[in-house]
Structure formats: structure tokens, C-alpha cells
């Protein structure tokens, strides 16, 4: 019985789906980038959320750090881009309080040349190998 019903639905359902997708294809595509309309696109955001949602936890909260030491460049450098820009909270998952302290710590570290200022890393990193190459033959 179930098989018969399925078979009966399948032929009738198939053309409907085709018709449906043909009719709604346009609007759906428009709705997608627009930021999710109701109904049809509702299924997509769910899928997206599943992909995008990684639960980020503040590292400093996990380790229960009440003080971020500006002298520890090894820790600070995890929260900085290659060129020395401070990463936003939404990328690293740091809580607001720790982000505030982190910013202060990074700025202090920059002041004493433990960390690069934004943009200056590219300037110093490029010549470094050159300088090393020049020094090496001399030695």
C-alpha cells in the first residue's frame, strides 16, 4: 500500500516540483543574497548556521587569567594579524573585558618593540632576510 501511494505520488509530484522550482527559482535566488526571506530560504539559513556556528570561547576566561601581561609576546601574538593588527573579537571569540585588557597589553608591547605596529611588520620582515644574508658572508 505504501509503495503504491509513493508511486502514485511520485509521478504527480515530480512535475509539480519541476514547476515549483521553475516558478520560484528566480525569487529564491534573489532572496538568498538579500538576507533571507520567509518560507523557502528559511531552510538555507538553518544549514548555514550549522556550518558557521562554532562556539568560540574566550581563551583568557578558560584559563582564568585576570591579568594579561604585556611582556608575553607569545600569547599576545595569537590575537594579532600577521602585520600586527589587533584581531577583532568576532574572529577570536575573546570576551569584551579581556579584549579591552588585551588591547592595552598589545599596545604596551608595541611600545617596547616586543610586537610590531600595524603595517610596520611588512617593512621590517622583508629586509630581515636581506640583512641576514649580508651579515652571513661577512661572518
Amino acid at each position: 500500500m505504501a509503495e503504491e501511494q509513493k508511486q502514485a505520488q511520485a509521478p504527480s509530484g515530480a512535475p509539480r516540483r519541476e514547476g515549483g522550482s521553475g516558478g520560484h527559482g528566480g525569487p529564491r535566488r534573489e532572496g538568498g543574497p538579500g538576507g533571507g526571506g520567509p518560507g523557502g530560504p528559511g531552510g538555507r539559513p538553518r544549514g548555514k548556521r550549522q556550518y558557521f556556528r562554532k562556539k568560540k570561547v574566550c581563551k583568557f576566561c578558560v584559563e582564568k587569567m585576570d591579568f594579561i601581561d604585556y611582556k608575553r609576546a607569545d600569547i599576545l601574538s595569537q590575537f594579532v594579524q600577521e602585520r600586527g593588527k589587533i584581531l577583532p573579537r568576532r574572529m577570536t571569540g575573546v570576551c569584551s573585558r579581556h579584549q579591552r585588557w588585551l588591547g592595552v597589553a598589545i599596545k604596551r608591547a608595541r611600545n617596547i618593540a616586543l610586537m610590531p605596529f600595524a603595517g610596520s611588520a611588512a617593512g621590517t620582515q622583508a629586509p630581515r632576510p636581506v640583512a641576514a644574508a649580508v651579515e652571513a658572508p661577512k661572518a
Binding site: 611582556k71 609576546a73 600586527g84 608595541r110 618593540a113 616586543l114 610586537m115 610590531p116 605596529f117 610596520s120 611588520a121 617593512g123 621590517t124 630581515r128 640583512a131
Partner: peptide, 16 residues
């Protein structure tokens, strides 16, 4: 190693 050049030096002796 200094993160950037200071007084034309790329390295420095740190004392804390």
C-alpha cells in the same frame, strides 16, 4: 629581535 627598527637597530639587549 626587535619587532621594528629602533635607532637603526634590529636587535637589542632587554633589561627588565
Amino acid at each position: 629581535k626587535l619587532a621594528y627598527r629602533v635607532a637603526k637597530h634590529r636587535e637589542g639587549i632587554y633589561v627588565y
